[in-house]
Amino acid sequence: MNNKASRLAKGAALMALVAATAGCGLPRSGPSKSEIFAGSVQREGDAFVVAVDDRVTRATALVPALGFPQAFLDAGRLGSDTIRPGDTLGLTIYENVEDGLLADQGMNATVLEEVQVGGDGFIFVPYAGRIRAAGNTPEAVRRLITDRLDEQTPDPQVQVRRMAGDGATVSVVGDVTAPGVYPIQRPTRTLAQMLARSGGLAIAPEVAQVTVVRGPHRGEVWFEDIFRDPTVDVALRDGDKILVEQDDRSFTALGATGTQARVDFEERSISAIEAIARVGGLRTSLADPTGVFVFRNEPEAIAEQVLGVDVAGPQRVVYVLDLTEPTGMFEARDFVIRDRDTVYVTEAPYVQWSKVLTALTGTVGTVETLNDVGS
Rank of each mutant, 00 (worst) to 15 (best):
N136F: 06
L14G: 00
Q246E: 15
L89N: 01
Q209D: 03
L8D: 04
W353N: 12
E224D: 13
G11L: 15
V309N: 03
R132K: 14
G25N: 11
V367T: 01
A47R: 14
V336H: 07
I145H: 03
A51W: 02
L323G: 05
V210E: 11
V170A: 14
L191R: 12
A16V: 08
V336T: 12
V212W: 08
G180H: 12
G308T: 02
E95Y: 01
G90S: 13
P27K: 12
I203P: 07
D120I: 04
D150I: 01
A13T: 01
A9M: 08
L78Y: 00
G129Q: 11
C24D: 08
S171I: 10
P64T: 06
Q152S: 07
Q352D: 14
E151F: 02
T188S: 15
S354M: 13
A19W: 05
D322F: 06
G239C: 12
V158H: 07
D248Y: 06
G23Y: 00
I93Y: 01
V336P: 02
D238S: 09
P183T: 10
G313T: 02
D238I: 02
P69S: 06
V356M: 11
T324A: 09
A71Y: 01
S34D: 15
M194F: 09
V56S: 03
R84Q: 00
R58Q: 03
L236Q: 12
F68E: 05
V50T: 01
A202L: 07
D166H: 08
V373R: 04
Y94H: 05
I270Y: 09
